[in-house]
Simulated assay, not measured.
Amino acid sequence: MAKITYIEHDGTSHTIDCENGMTVMEGAIKNSIPGIDADCGGACACATCHVYVDGAWKDKTGSAEQMEEDMLDFAFDVRDGSRLSCQIKVSDEVDGLVVRLPEKQF
């Protein structure tokens, strides 16, 4: 089990407990975190679960693989640390992870 904190663009913070083996996206959907739409259900095919991961967590969350990099091309306001939350696995190593959500674009 790991605590994950999601910070909305306006600064609203949500901290939840996620089971190991889930993805950061699945934890958000299960707990109705606003700003994570996950239109593709976690198939790495839509970029609607885009988050920003602080560089201090990069070693523990891993790097984006090619498929994720390709999908991030469709995300708004991609930065260093941009990841798709459907590609970040929850484990004891990411206990305390904080992800920030980009501003929603409609």
Rank of each mutant, 00 (worst) to 15 (best):
M1Y: 06
A2C: 10
A2R: 06
K3P: 00
I4T: 08
I4C: 07
Y6K: 07
I7K: 14
I7W: 10
I7Q: 13
H9W: 15
G11S: 05
G11D: 08
S13D: 08
S13R: 15
S13G: 03
H14N: 14
H14C: 12
H14R: 13
T15V: 09
T15A: 14
D17F: 04
D17W: 02
C18M: 12
E19V: 10
N20G: 08
N20D: 13
G21K: 07
M22L: 14
M22R: 10
M22H: 12
T23K: 04
T23W: 10
T23N: 04
T23V: 07
V24K: 01
M25F: 10
E26D: 15
G27A: 11
I29H: 08
I29D: 05
I29G: 05
K30Q: 15
N31H: 15
S32Y: 12
P34R: 12
P34W: 10
G35I: 11
I36C: 03
I36F: 12
I36E: 03
C40T: 03
C40E: 03
G41L: 03
G42K: 06
C44K: 08
C44T: 10
T48C: 09
T48V: 12
H50W: 11
H50N: 04
H50V: 03
H50S: 05
Y52P: 01
Y52T: 00
V53K: 07
D54S: 15
G55Y: 10
G55I: 09
G55V: 09
A56F: 03
W57K: 09
K58C: 03
K60P: 02
K60C: 01
T61C: 13
T61F: 07
S63C: 04
Q66K: 08
Q66Y: 09
M67L: 06
E68A: 01
E68I: 04
D70V: 01
D70P: 03
M71D: 02
M71C: 01
D73S: 10
F74G: 02
A75G: 08
F76T: 01
D77R: 14
V78D: 04
R79Y: 11
R79Q: 14
D80Y: 14
D80L: 14
G81Q: 14
S82N: 11
S82L: 12
R83E: 00
C86T: 06
Q87P: 02
I88Q: 02
I88K: 02
I88N: 04
K89S: 07
V90G: 00
V90Y: 02
V90H: 00
V90T: 01
S91W: 09
D92A: 15
D92K: 14
D92L: 03
D92F: 04
D95H: 11
G96W: 07
G96F: 09
L97N: 01
L97P: 03
V98W: 05
V99M: 07
R100I: 04
L101V: 02
P102K: 11
E103Y: 13
E103F: 10
K104G: 00
K104N: 07
K104C: 00
Q105W: 15
Q105S: 08
Q105V: 13
Q105D: 02
F106L: 08
